[in-house]
């Protein structure tokens, strides 16, 4: 590992652990300031409704996205969040356009720049929205615009698919057919797409390995 990467790892760890403490301090500050500590049972009850799914998604996201985003990109993206809808596509597109590989130092640089830029822009957009809340809220919530935001993922992944599938069509066929068939047969799985990313990744890796061993790719 180069000096830059080693240093990025150390600095990244300091930032992410500081962020973890800061994030935990938010509910602590609320409870202390308002003297409003809730009963543990009510928190646990609420947590039971979300933790099993979202802790699993959390583990999957870390394992799947870390190799793609590089060291700096990972430490920053997991603090700023919204990986699937912004950070991962931003990093992948930037690396593709700059013609660098994800596991090279150039890839590390481009991925970090893309994730940092998109974090700054997202934060600024939300700040503007919060400052102009009474003006922005009715526009964003208008039923006319709702379909645009409801369809943000197909609008994003349609374009991404053309770039990646056209370049790697042999590697794409098996995971694509598998995932389409799976969702056609079991539509209720749509709610757990975060977990199914792992299934897609495993199918893609196994089929690629077989094709590679057979000399098809």
């Amino acid at each position: 590992m180069s000096n830059y990467l080693k240093k990025t790892d150390t600095i990244g760890k300091i930032w992410i652990w500081s962020a973890a403490v800061l994030v935990l301090m938010v509910p602590v500050a609320i409870c202390v300031y308002y003297n409003s500590w809730p009963e543990i049972t009510s928190v646990l009850k609420g947590l039971l409704g979300v933790a099993p799914i979202f802790w699993t998604v959390g583990v999957i996201e870390v394992i799947t996205y870390t190799p793609m985003l590089g060291i700096g990109g990972t430490y920053l993206a997991f603090v700023t969040g919204n990986l699937t809808s912004i950070k991962a596509p931003a990093a992948l597109t930037a690396m593709e356009n700059a013609d660098v590989k994800a596991d090279s130092e150039e890839g590390e640089v481009i991925s970090t720049i893309a994730i940092a830029t998109s974090s700054i822009v997202t934060t600024l957009v939300i700040i503007v929205g919060v400052v102009l809340f009474s003006l922005v809220a009715p526009v964003i919530e208008s039923p006319v615009l709702k379909p645009a935001f409801d369809n943000i993922l197909p609008a994003l992944f349609g374009g991404l698919a053309v770039v990646y599938v056209s370049k790697n069509w042999k590697l794409s066929i098996v995971p694509l057919v598998f995932m389409v068939t799976l969702f056609l047969c079991v539509p209720s799985l749509a709610d757990s797409v975060g977990i199914l990313v792992t299934v897609g990744v495993i199918v893609a890796l196994v089929s690629s390995r077989i094709m590679y061993k057979k000399g098809w790719i």
């Binding site: 799947t64 699937t84 991404l160 990646y164 794409s172 995971p175 995932m179």
Partner: peptide, 12 residues
């Protein structure tokens, strides 16, 4: 394959 697996899930 990692990228494609992720994209496949969101296309599916």
């Amino acid at each position: 394959s990692l990228f494609l697996g992720m994209i496949s899930a969101f296309l599916g």
